[in-house]
Amino acid sequence: MDDAIDCDVHCAPESYDVLFPYLSDYWRQYITEAGVRLNGMAHAYPRGVVAPAPASYEALAERVLRGASEPRIVVLNCLTGFETHRNPYFAAAVAAALNDWLREEFLSRDSRLRASLVVSTVSPDDAVSEIERMGEDPGFVQVLLPVRSDLPWGHKNNHPMFAAARAAGLQVGLHAWGRAGKAPTPSGFTTTYLEDYLGNQPIAQAQVLSFISEGVFERFPELRVVVSECGFAWLAPLLWRFDKDWKGVWREVPWVKRRPSEYVREHFCFTTAPAHLPSDPVAIDQVVEMMAGSAALVYASDYPHEHGDALAALLGRLSDEQRRRLMCGTAADLYGLAAGADYQIR
């Protein structure tokens, strides 16, 4: 098959026990004595519809790497860091342990694998330390951040994280969900799981607004942000209004020197799962046209989460070249991976 880079495949340790080799005595005791447990992001997906994320290289190899649509490169997203509670010292220790585990369990065993770097989502300074410790390992391609954050990610307090990421050659992966206890909408908590489940889309929009309005890409012109598992069909109307309102109130943000949509097109990518597409093929064409083409889209299976056959419907409406870019080329450029070449990383 053609080359493919799958930008969002999940993996997660089954329990904190798996991380014990990478944690200090203090944290092992902390976990054991307090009964701290992982729930496998069980709150995030409808009960019973998904398999647990692969917890070992063997499981990943059997279920993803040897599958019928075998991808050439897989970017692993371990959301376990999103489960960590508000203790900043614990969050930093777990992030480091997860990265050590990712490297030992997956990255060091298969040159087709890459991963997002897990960082503390509580303290930007701890995130910087972890990026500096591990970010230059060639197995890591981006810093993993949840869409649900304490502050919108564009806030200046988070800029040192982006500086560290670029110094290490990393991009940013902004993924659905966030720490338990973070509001799933920009205006607070929801009453129903249904709202919570759909909430990743509007909160991703709020993050897009933040990155642009706070001038992140003026400070870090090489930074790219991959928005994972939050859809993309909402982008065009957001940008219509964003450009329009920026014209009227640009003086508040004179560091935003171009139309917001231009920054978005240069700096953001969106994964294809879930796709949030209409069922009418002509309407799919219109969505792609309104997004000024498919250049912002990168392929992701979101394994083991099943989102239906929207990707096939989308690919069926694209040219061969657009398909190649979406499946591989755009992500290869984004992450500095040589498309179609030898992917050996060490």
């Binding site: 001038g215 003026e218 560091w255």
Partner: peptide, 23 residues
């Protein structure tokens, strides 16, 4: 602005901003 937060107003060029939409 040279950077986020590093903003200044300069006298050249002068512009007039429409009261309706700020253009």
């Amino acid at each position: 602005a040279d950077a986020p937060g590093q903003a200044a107003v300069v006298s050249d060029p002068l512009r007039i901003a429409c009261p309706w939409h700020g253009w």
